[in-house]
């Protein structure tokens, strides 16, 4: 059954959302994830669909549009996948009359043999699906909202007193993490300023002002030197990670689960995920002699290979990088990796 057009107000909202994504009005992946989720909830409640299959088709379609507007923002795709998974779960639990354990989506030999909850037909009508899906999405929303907090509460498990911690740029999660630890422990933070965005400076000012944490700002180039006395480096770029590895300093990455993406990337795939910004931040346009003849690159993202990371701290606890595949299985349905 072909999908009908979206109701006009919904289509308008979609356009608006896409526009703001394109303009980069939403700062940070948290906002993006949050807005995506709100939009998907609206889509489910307001668009016309009769079966789970229709709904999944609809979400896939609109999700694709959203993802293609900002491919480097993996949070959009992640949220779309989470919603698809929610629909699948709710549908299965309604059809089979029992709850599906969220950790149990994987095909195992044993399960295939037993074949008790094997659902691949989504076309059965299912009356109370909408309510349950929306309820689950609300749960997901509250998980999203609390993710930074739940990561921050783990801070005391990882930071001891008079520790020296190096971090880079500005991340809401890391800021909350450090501020929370700073409430009860005395430690020192070295913040890399991360030119050309200088978010590191912002973080440093926040930490020193709000948290009374002893903070030092250094330039990007100075990462290597002080690393050997860092006991921990939190959330960083590849270079920082390498420096940490070089000095055998543990590298901790703080990331809420909504940032976990099922994409397979390695350092050679830079083009697949990176984003470039205006060279103006690197060299001012008034220095036109440089601009005229020199290629100036200003990539936004960096890739940190898993072997350099000691620990991921997500809102459900700390995990080794090797365990991430398992988290992925729990969060997303394998069928939805490719939308």
């Amino acid at each position: 059954m072909p999908l009908t057009a979206l109701p006009s107000d919904l289509a308008e909202r979609l356009d608006q959302f896409i526009r703001s994504l394109k303009k980069g009005e939403l700062k940070g992946s948290y906002d993006v994830a949050h807005q995506t989720l709100l939009f998907l909830r609206r889509l489910i409640s307001q668009s016309r669909w009769s079966t789970a299959k229709d709904l999944r088709e609809r979400i896939r379609l609109e999700g694709k549009k959203l993802i293609s507007t900002q491919p480097s923002e993996s949070a959009i795709g992640n949220m779309v996948r989470r919603v698809l998974k929610i629909i699948w779960e709710e549908y299965v639990s309604i059809i089979s009359g029992q709850g599906v354990d969220s950790g149990d989506t994987q095909e195992s030999l044993q399960k295939m043999l037993r074949a008790d909850v094997h659902v691949d037909d989504f076309s059965k009508p299912c009356p109370n699906l909408k309510g349950r899906v929306i309820e689950s999405i609300n749960e997901l929303l509250s998980e999203l909202e609390g993710s930074a907090d739940s990561i921050a509460t783990q801070a005391l498990e990882h930071i001891h007193s008079s520790e020296v911690i190096m971090t880079m740029g500005k991340s809401r999660t890391v800021e909350a993490f450090l501020l929370n630890a700073g409430k009860s422990r005395k430690f020192q933070v070295i913040v890399v300023e991360s030119a050309p965005s200088y978010q590191g400076q912002e973080l440093a000012v926040n930490l020193a002002k709000k948290g009374n944490i002893e903070t030092t700002v250094i330039t990007d180039s100075a990462i290597y030197s002080p690393s050997w006395l860092d006991l921990k480096a939190v959330c960083g770029s590849h270079a920082l990670a390498l420096a940490a590895k070089h000095y055998s300093v543990p590298l901790i990455v703080c990331a809420p689960l909504f940032k976990l993406s099922p994409q397979f990337l390695c350092s050679e795939d830079q083009e697949a995920f990176n984003k470039f910004e205006s060279p103006q931040n690197v060299v001012d346009f008034y220095e036109s002699d440089i601009h005229a003849k020199v290629h100036i690159h200003n990539p936004v993202f960096d890739y940190v290979p898993p072997e350099l990371v000691t620990l991921y701290i997500s809102n459900i606890g700390g995990n080794a990088p090797s365990y991430v595949y398992r988290l992925l299985r729990e969060l997303y349905h394998p069928d939805d990796y490719e939308i």
Binding site: I190, E193, A195, P196, S197, Y198, Q201, E202, A204, V205, L207, A208, K209, N212, I213, E214, T215, T216, V217, I218, T219, S221, A222, Y224, S225, N281, D284
Partner: peptide
């Protein structure tokens, strides 16, 4: 380090913030 070409100059008053220091190393 303070004179950044970004529009927001976070470090402008860094001296007045008690716990903040700025380190500008020259060699490594």
């Amino acid at each position: 380090l303070v004179h950044s070409n970004s529009s927001v100059d976070y470090l402008r008053n860094w001296r007045s913030i008690k716990n903040l220091t700025v380190l500008n190393l020259v060699y490594d």
